[in-house]
Nucleic acid binder design. Structure first.
Length: 509
RNA sequence: CGGAGCGUAGCGCAGCCUGGUAGCGCAUCUGGUUUGGGACCAGAGGGUCGCGUGUUCGAAUCACGCCGCUCCGACCA
């Protein structure tokens, strides 16, 4: 059977790389671990960014920009924070190069008095500003967000999922009370959940991270977890309640309405270009990427079937008017993004390029379509009937007036439902003891396993370390404790003690 | 940084064991034939075989060193 890719999802890691490449999303760069995001991939990011930014602003946050460089001493202020990031920090030590013996090297005379780190995250540099901005309870809450690049020197990079430099959004807020800060943390988690599900068609489970998986310096960390087509979990977004840890380290204080000085409670939350990796691994198939229409840079692509003959002109004119009509429609609150592909390559080649890129609807227009006032379309979410590509002819008028927008919404919803069904079907709840966990995850790692939802006693300290070690031996981690917890709990799967909450266990990226 | 594998034309690969100066498929270019849709015929262009050193009359092939990539570990949005 001829597919648009030369590798299938059976070899998931190879398949992922093939999709990223063949869908023109991104490529590796001369800098190890740093990627070039190509127009089609960046277009997805821009749409994702546009819609999430709207939602972040709708919840009262404002955008800012803070420096790329952070004085090393700032990072050192919060003990757990340094420890968490020390091993992956890029450090700037000089500000000039010098030609020594024909070689350009950092000029020893231009050594910085204090090294600067390239931000791995901005709690400390933003906290420094917060300390100056917050004086009174009347300055609170302080609700700030920024869209920037950050650098974390990762050992093993993977395009979109884990790159040395990545793009993200980081929100930072300061509040007068614990309750308010916790509410903010949960509110933004919910913004992420609904955004992932409604816009990216990525079903997720929102929950709280166990102690050992917390953000360095956080009191509580919450995450949304998505299941990829190989059954592994992808942490798709995090929201942290930082308590007064950073406020104490950086002296972020305010005078309350009784004139007493108090430390602020702060939060931070972020999602990154990793989400794009999640979209690829959730929706892609053996013909390439399938993009949810809400984030497809081109939702409907019209490919004219040209033959270097006189009737080409009619076909082009017809296709052009079709694209104009489609562009005047609206879907998901924005104008429909339609494209007439006039690139000078073979039409068949164009079709397969758009299939691989995951354009939701691909329309082919030939002379007979033009003459009969018809269009012929393919839906990327329902491409094939067996081995054959499904190609449907319909009147142009019906398509524009009734079907086009409806179909985009159907595709968006369909992709979500397909992924949601997979997520739900692959969370096993009937494992009740450790032996059951071991036997379930025994065997080949390549085998699709999904997650277990089990009860545990929520241990801490040495007992938690022991749990972590047992899980690690099976390459498992605790993903999170879902927000929706049952009334009664089974005994702890690790110790048999009374259960404290249910958690998700699985392999992860 | 540890273990495994790989680096040959834009992409995918063969050749390496048993050294003799590079080949296949797809893509590209030209001409022609086709045309409801991943076409066919003929011809052409494109590679200092990852880099360096050594062995040799001669190295893609053998040896040593380095670099890079992929997978597995430690790290992680």
């Amino acid at each position: 059977m001829q597919r648009a890719l030369n590798v299938t999802r059976e070899r998931f890691a190879d398949w992922y790389q093939a999709v990223v490449r063949d869908a023109d999303m991104a490529e590796t760069s001369p800098v190890r671990g740093a990627m070039v995001i190509k127009p089609w991939g960046y277009g997805v990011w821009e749409l994702l960014q546009q819609e999430l930014d709207r939602r972040i602003k709708a919840t009262g946050h404002e955008n800012c920009y803070f420096p790329l460089f952070i004085p090393l001493s700032f990072i050192a202020k919060e003990a757990e924070h340094v420890e968490g990031f020390a091993k992956e920090m890029a450090v700037v030590t000089h500000h000039r190069l010098k030609n020594i013996d024909g070689k350009l090297v950092p000029d020893p005379a231009a050594k910085l008095e204090e090294p600067l780190v390239v931000r791995p995250t901005s709690e400390t540099i933003i906290g420094d500003a917060f300390a100056r901005w917050v004086k009174s309870h009347r300055d609170l809450p302080l609700l700030i967000n920024q869209w920037v690049n950050v650098v974390r020197w990762e050992m093993r990079p993977r395009l979109f999922l884990r790159t040395t430099e990545f793009l993200w959004q980081e929100g930072h807020t300061a509040h007068a009370t614990i309750e308010e800060a916790v509410e903010e943390t949960r509110k933004m988690l919910e913004v992420y959940r609904s955004f992932a599900e409604d816009v990216l068609a990525l079903p997720v489970i929102a929950g709280e991270k166990p102690e050992n998986e917390r953000f360095p310096g956080a009191v509580n960390t919450y995450s949304i977890e998505a299941m990829m087509q190989d059954g592994k979990a992808l942490q798709a977004g995090t929201s942290h309640f930082l308590g007064t840890h950073f406020a104490e380290a950086q002296n972020i204080r305010f005078q309350n309405d009784s004139s007493e000085m108090e430390f602020c409670n702060t939060t931070s939350w972020g999602v990154s270009t990793r989400l794009i990796g999640g979209v690829i691994m959730t929706h892609g198939d053996d013909d390439g990427l399938r993009l949810p229409p809400a984030i497809a840079p081109r939702q409907i692509v019209v490919v004219p079937m040209l033959r270097d003959k006189p009737e080409d002109e009619e076909v082009l004119a017809y296709a052009k008017s079709l694209v104009e009509a489609l562009s005047s429609l609206a879907a998901f609150g924005y104008p429909v993004r339609a494209l007439l592909d006039t690139k000078k390559i073979k039409s068949a080649e164009k079709r397969w390029n758009w299939v691989r890129r995951g354009a939701p609807i691909i329309i082919e227009i030939g002379p007979r379509d033009a003459a009969a006032d018809n269009i012929t379309y393919m839906r990327r979410d329902d491409l094939r009937d067996g081995d054959k590509v499904k190609s449907v002819a319909i009147s142009r008028r019906e398509f524009i007036e009734e079907k086009a927008v409806q179909m985009l919404h159907e595709i968006q919803h369909g992709l979500f439902c397909e992924a949601k069904a997979r997520l739900d079907a692959n969370i096993k709840r009937d494992v009740t003891d450790w032996a059951g966990v071991e036997s379930y995850f025994a065997g080949s790692e390549d085998e699709f396993k999904g997650w277990l939802r089990v009860s545990w006693g929520k241990p801490f300290g040495a007992a938690l370390d022991a749990v972590e070690t047992r899980l690690k031996a099976l390459k498992l981690t605790i993903r999170n404790a879902p927000l929706d917890q049952p009334e009664t709990l089974a005994p702890c799967i690790f110790s048999g003690a009374p259960g404290a909450e249910e958690i998700l266990i699985g392999r992860s990226y």
